[in-house]
Amino acid sequence: MESANEIIRIEGLNKTFHTKDGDVVALDDIHLEIAQGEIFGIIGLSGAGKSTLVRCMNLLEQPTAGRVFFDGQELSELGRKELNEKRHSIGMIFQSFNLLMQRTALQNICFPLELVGTPKAEAKKRARELLALVNLEEKENSYPAQLSGGQKQRVAIARALATNPKVLLCDEATSALDPNTTRGVLALLKDINQKLGVTIVVITHEMSVIEEICSRVAILDHSHIVELGRVEDIFVKPQSQIARHLLFPAGKKKFKFGSGGRCLRIVFDGLSSYEPVLSSMVLECGYPVNILFADTRDIDGKAMGQIVVELPDEEKAVHRMYAYLNTQGIRFEEVKDL
């Protein structure tokens, strides 16, 4: 109750799985607050515990220790029936969509309404509204088997929204989709967040998903939160090894970094990237650089990105470049190992 607008609060959460090969700690000492109306990202590599964390938010997974508050109410204090009622205000979507295969799109969206005893006609009307919201009016009588991955996820989103939840939990919701479809689904989530004010929690292993829609992010590594903050800040100045790793996907690390050479990571924070910074720097300093990695994209309408260049061997040149970047107010850092 400390902060009026927080919808989810997690205190000292621990989840340990007891397996026959011994105990496995999936989450340890997790503290987290998610504000009403934000899009909060949780990113980590597979096995980091992120899916377990999101399942603790609606108690699909029982925490071993710690407390989970939803809308000021501690969830583990609730009885089975009260918990089920609470869950009507926590929507969830999944990587594998998890639609009822023997129901049409419309019937799938009616499902959560049936659970709360909404009259049939009313449920149908609401389901049609939701189908319109996710742009699938013409698919109301299609079965999941007849829908594409993106369409299935849209139906799942509509279904999750049927009972007007306050929060929508997205567990790797775009991981099974191709990049174009992913963009469409993310745009839809953003739209829902803005139109309906639904708080969205996004679990992903892809930094691009976080950059695209999240305002804040927690980076999860080996059962711990290693970084937490605004996406822009973490993007511009990642503190942890894992954050760097996520920012530079291994697949793109094609180049072996120079013969002991130093590398410079130049960050575009949304102000400067339309100016030819790199060319200007090279012209100004009179030394060429080798571009090792470049990645820019549109985040929240601002151009964000990063370029990693290999620095020349001469110390003089490096100093000049640093000075140039400083005068231009461009953020940069020297990197050794990505």
């Binding site: 609606n58 699909l60 089975r80 029936k81 918990l83 089920n84 009622e85 609470k86 869950r87 009507h88 926590i90 929507g91 969830m92 999944f94 594998s96 998890n98 639609l99 009822l100 295969m101 499902f111 959560p112 049936e114 659970l115 709360v116 799942a156 279904r159 999750a160 009972t163 939990l169």
Partner: peptide, 22 residues
């Protein structure tokens, strides 16, 4: 599919509802 059962649990379905509707 256990995923479908989990989804219905996330929507607050009770045991009877999961049996009869899922």
């Amino acid at each position: 599919d256990p995923g479908v059962i989990e989804a219905s649990q996330s929507m607050g379905a009770n045991t009877m509802q999961i049996i009869c509707k899922v």
